[in-house]
Design a protein around this nucleic acid. Structure first.
Lengths: 186, 186
DNA sequence: CCCATGTGAGACATTGAAGTCTCACATCAG
DNA sequence: CTGATGTGAGACTTCAATGTCTCACATGGG
C-alpha cells in the first residue's frame, strides 16, 4: 500500500473519533512521516477536501449501485421501497467509512464540496419524491426534510457505533426501521 | 443586559452557523470587546464548556418540565406517550438554542460534561424503558439506540432550520412524527 | 553495482488565533 | 463632584500547529 493510500485509510479512522486530530497525529496513525503526509497533501484543508470528495464519490456510487434514478422513474412502489432499503444499507456502511465528512466544518463549508453534495442530494430527492408519489414515503413532509432525517440517522448510527451502543451487524437494520417505521410500537 | 449575558446569547448563535468562529468573531457578534470577552471567559474552552453546561442544564430542565421520571414511573401508556411528545417538542427548541453543543468536539470530549450528559441520558433512558415496556415505543431495539435516534433527529432539525428547508413552526411536529411514526407512508 | 524514487527524522520558519496588559473613557451610586 | 466598576481599543506576547527544507537511508529496477 502506498503511503498516500495509508493516509487516506487512516485519516478518516482517526478523525472519526478525534475530529480535531492534528496532521502529526494523522501521520502517526497512518504510520507515515509528517513530511510524507505533507508531500501528498499540501495542507490540512487539502486532506479534508480529498476525504470529502471521496465521500461524495462514495455517495454517488452508492446511489448508482442501488439504481436510484432507475427506481425513481419506474413508478413501482415495490421497486422504490426495495431501492430505498438497499440505499440506506449502503449509506450505513459509507457513514462508517466517511463519518468525519458528515460533520466536519472544513468539508461542510467547502464551496466545491457543497455543490457536489447538492448535486447528489438532487438525485436522492428524485427517489424521495417518487417514493412519496407512490405511497412508499409519507407525502405530508417536505422532500428535503426526508434527506435531513436520513442524514441525522447516519450521524446517530455513526456515534452509536463509536460508543459501542449497538452491534455493527445490527446497524443497517436499525436505521432502516427507524427511518421507515419510526420508533413507536406498532 | 450584562456583557456576559450578551456573549452567552450571541456565542451559540454564531457558533451554530460557524462552529469554528474565533474569539474575535464571537466578541464582535456579541457587540463586545475582545478583552471583555476574555474577562468573562479565560479561554475559548471555558466559553464552550459554559455553553455545554448550560445546554445540559436545559436538557435537565426540559426533562423536569416534561415530568419524565414521573411519567416513567406511572406505567401509564397514555401519560408516557404524552410525556414523550412534550419532551421532544422541548428538545427541538433546545436544539435551536444550543445546537452547537450537539456536535462541538470541545463540548463532546470534556470529561465533566460527558459525565453530566450521561447522567441526563440515564434519566431519559428511564422514560424510553418505560415506553418500551408499556407498548409506546418498540421493544425490539436497544434503549440507548432510541437516545441516539433522538439525537440524530435533533441534529437533522437543527441543520434543516439553518438551511431553511423547513419552517420553524413545523419543526417540532416533523421531529415527533419522524421519531414515532417514521417516514414510511401509513 | 548504481541510479531513481520515495521516505523518515528532525530542524526550522511561519502563521494565526489565543491570551495578556495598559490606558483612556463612560457610567453610576453615593 | 468623586471614586468604583466595567468597558473598548489596541499593542503586545505566547503558543501550538502548520508548512518547509535538508539530508541520510532504504528499496527496487536496470
Amino acid at each position: 500500500m502506498s503511503s498516500r493510500d495509508a493516509v487516506l485509510a487512516a485519516a478518516p479512522r482517526v478523525l472519526a473519533t478525534q475530529p480535531t486530530a492534528s496532521m502529526a497525529e494523522i501521520a502517526a496513525a497512518a504510520g507515515v512521516g509528517r513530511a510524507t503526509l505533507h508531500r501528498h497533501f499540501a495542507s490540512r484543508e487539502d486532506l479534508l477536501r480529498e476525504i470529502g470528495q471521496r465521500s461524495l464519490d462514495q455517495w454517488a456510487a452508492s446511489m448508482d449501485e442501488a439504481r436510484v434514478l432507475e427506481a425513481a422513474e419506474s413508478g413501482d412502489a415495490t421497486v422504490i421501497r426495495a431501492c430505498l432499503v438497499d440505499l440506506l444499507t449502503r449509506y450505513v456502511a459509507d457513514a462508517q467509512a466517511f463519518g468525519i465528512a458528515l460533520t466536519d466544518p472544513t468539508v461542510l463549508n467547502d464551496p466545491e464540496l457543497r455543490e457536489g453534495a447538492e448535486r447528489c442530494f438532487v438525485d436522492e430527492l428524485r427517489l424521495h419524491g417518487a417514493a412519496q408519489a407512490t405511497g412508499v414515503l409519507r407525502p405530508d413532509v417536505p422532500p428535503r426534510w426526508l434527506g435531513h432525517v436520513l442524514y441525522g440517522l447516519l450521524v446517530a448510527v455513526r456515534d452509536a457505533l463509536v460508543e459501542g451502543d449497538i452491534a455493527p451487524r445490527d446497524a443497517a437494520g436499525l436505521v432502516v426501521t427507524a427511518f421507515l417505521e419510526g420508533s413507536g410500537a406498532r
